[in-house]
Amino acid sequence: MTEALPTLWFVLIAVLWAGYLFLEGFDLGVGMLMKLMARNDTQRRVLLNTVGPVWDGNEVWLVTAVGATFAAFPHWYASLLSALYLPFLLVLLGLIFRAVAFEWRGKRDSDAWRDRWDWAIAVGSFIAAAGIGAALALTTTGLPLDVNGNRVGGAFAWATMPALLGAVAVVLFCLVHAAAFVALKTEGSIRSQADRLFRRLLPVAMIPFLGWALLVQVGSGTVVTWFVVVLAVVAFIASYRAATVGRDGRAFAGLGVGMLALIGSIFGAAFPVVLPSTLDPAFDLTVQNASSSPYTLGLMSLVACFGLPLVLAYQAWTYWVFRRRVSEASIPAAHAVTAL
């Protein structure tokens, strides 16, 4: 039993990353669409309010994925975050600006003020998506780590083709996922704009993600993980077909399931290595040599057994409470805050 604990935690952390990409995927994408799709302020506010009640809860999936990595695989956490010092710094700055922009954007009735925060949301979302994508691609393809798990080769040793591939993959996924989400969550002209964008993007947008998955499969894939990649492609085709017949829900679900399958195939193929060293396979961090003690993993397993289902339940309830579509008519007039 205790031998299985590191594997269980590897699966759990893959689940947390998958959950993060699925949930924050669309709100990062909605952030980028603020500047790429919305035509006027009302449309921007419609976009914001589709994710308004949920984006902060979605972001906790990231915090939990990182925190759980610290608890279950301290060596993975330490090596990955210190090796990717500048990319994670950029991700943090992006997320900081994005978070305050969400909350502060409407707090002053001024076009210049709103425009500034719209840029913060769009650029912050873009940087966060790209940085997380690069980090996940690198943890599955490798970094130049020495025997102690420390990066060699300087501050930009991470700037490689796989990093770029991962960044592009996640940015494009977020955009197309957001288009599906907005089509599902809105009414009126913005809905048809999103629907058109989705159908135009989907055939190409998932190609880099697929490329990342194939890159990992070629290295260490198994029959099962190859099969899961095929499943993902089937899901994308189903998603596209659903969109062409106006089934927003199925289109969104198909895309999401396809992405989850790709993440599953990537982590599945990478197992049992959590962070390969490109210098020497002997320096690889694996589920065994990077993990915490069985006692700590056991304790964390108890907490996760209790906590994770609860999180899924109340977050699902939130989506249920705010299930109504948002339209331009739902947006109240902006009001100025004036001194008495």
Binding site: G57, V60, V63, T64, G67, A68, F70, A71, A72, F73, P74, H75, Y77, A78, S292, S293, T296, L299, M300, V303, A304, G307, L308, V311, Y314, Q315
Partner: peptide, 17 residues
Amino acid sequence: GDVFGAPLAMEALLAFF
């Protein structure tokens, strides 16, 4: 990590969510 990570992960899972 073996002892310090656990409260951080629990904070995220049980409180931040």
